[in-house]
């Protein structure tokens, strides 16, 4: 969370700076009375850098993917107590001979 979040804030700051320098560039164009054809090169570079940082942050900050397979390693322990209400110990299995229990324990 920490590192990705800091990178995201840094990317947003870079984008803000790019916006600010574009505003300044437009002011300059107004003075020299030229038409705006496209943003200057350093703004494009800043935008690309900010996009890369924000992409990295946007992919890492929201959290890891969790496996949806019922037999994967992280789901095995969690899914056991989900049926706890339906466990029944008072069933006909108690009339079975006790040697079977010993075998099961092995």
């Amino acid at each position: 969370m920490g590192l990705g979040f800091v990178v995201g804030v840094f990317g947003v700051l870079i984008l803000a700076h790019a916006a600010y320098s574009t505003i300044q560039y437009r002011g300059l164009l107004k003075i020299t009375e030229e038409e705006f054809s496209g943003p200057p090169m350093n703004v494009v570079a800043e935008l690309l850098l900010g996009l890369v940082f924000c992409m990295w942050a946007g992919l890492t900050v929201p959290g890891k993917f969790l496996s949806i397979l019922p037999d994967s390693e992280e789901n095995r322990i969690v899914s056991l107590p989900a049926n706890l209400d339906f466990m029944s110990f008072n069933h006909r299995g108690k009339v079975f001979p006790k040697e079977l229990d010993v075998k099961l324990k092995l």
Binding site: G8, G11, V12, L15, A18, A19, T22, F36, G38, P39, V43, V44, L47, G50, L51, C54, M55, A57, G58, V61
Partner: peptide
């Protein structure tokens, strides 16, 4: 998040 960032970039690029 990335569509917001993309919108800001498209706006700055004009």
């Amino acid at each position: 998040f990335l569509s917001i960032i993309g919108g800001v970039i498209a706006g700055i690029l004009g």
